[in-house]
Design a protein around this nucleic acid. Structure first.
Lengths: 144, 144
DNA sequence: ATTATTAGCGCAAACGATTGCAATAACTAG
DNA sequence: CTAGTTATTGCAATCGTTTGCGCTAATAAT
């Protein structure tokens, strides 16, 4: 266990059944210190159980996202997931050229977010926001 | 033609062959006054040609995106495309609950973008940035 | 015009991800 | 502890999108 017991309790109190498959997926994502791809989650989950279906992994990850336990990051054409740490919130920047991921302090978008709420009543999902673009290294190797 | 002749010239000068299929797709997106889904582009393209393959529509739309002629907006689980109008640049906000799309003045993110470039050398692709979240109407009907 | 080059096409298969469904297992109440 | 209920699972089919591959047709040179 990696200190995510509170998430288990929270999910259970919301009526979710904590099956071995779900506990396994949660444990795998929580034991990672960063984002992890679905394939990798599946691979690790299969080591713990005779069989876990890929669909169950996907369903569980979406469930955890909906419950606010993990964030989703699209890297290339693959979904990755990461535990939400209230003590270290951040956004992600992904380079569309090399798929590098950079984290960004929420300070950068706090004002922007507030304006959207105040002026439009639109509450942005910053937790799952990914900013696409091109990183420094790729920009430099590009201008050849 | 809808005043996108310059795009055709630009693409041709970049070595792209302007086939009837491509001209058709470009014409369809350009004649729209907003974003249009891939299915709809395909449907309209098939009216103009005996047969246009869906893969060709996808390939052409990605080509136009790469060339900076159109922007991509993910609405629900479907890609939509929209002509880039230099005189009316904007970002998109999409409500993940009802799939409504709102446009946003680039003023809101200009400072943020500048900071990313200055501090990280990361150039965000604001043209294709979509801000997910929940709109006012959905927030209100949610708190029932 | 004719030809040579090669980018783009239709087609079909594959991709990552989601969903419908019958069987199963986690919870609840007694 | 047992029985009942229903959420979750494995499975398979399907979703929207992308890709590999020969054939075709758009361009450039003659």
């Amino acid at each position: 266990m990696s200190g995510h017991g509170s998430a288990v309790d929270m999910l259970r109190s919301q009526g979710y059944r904590m099956t071995p498959q779900r506990l396994s997926v949660l444990d795998i994502v929580a034991s990672q210190q960063g984002h992890i791809g679905v394939d990798e989650v599946w691979g690790l989950a299969r080591q713990q159980h005779p069989y876990v279906d890929l669909a169950t992994v996907y369903r569980t990850l979406q469930l955890l996202k909906r419950a606010g336990v993990v964030t989703e990051v699209l890297i290339g054409n693959r979904l990755h997931f990461e535990m939400i740490d209230k003590h270290n919130p951040h956004q992600h920047m992904v380079c569309s050229s090399c798929d590098s991921v950079f984290t960004l302090s929420p300070d950068y978008l706090a004002g922007f977010s507030r304006r959207l709420v105040e002026e439009f009543g639109f509450v942005p999902d910053l937790e799952n926001l990914t900013i696409g673009g091109t990183c420094l290294a790729c920009l430099q190797s590009e201008q050849a």
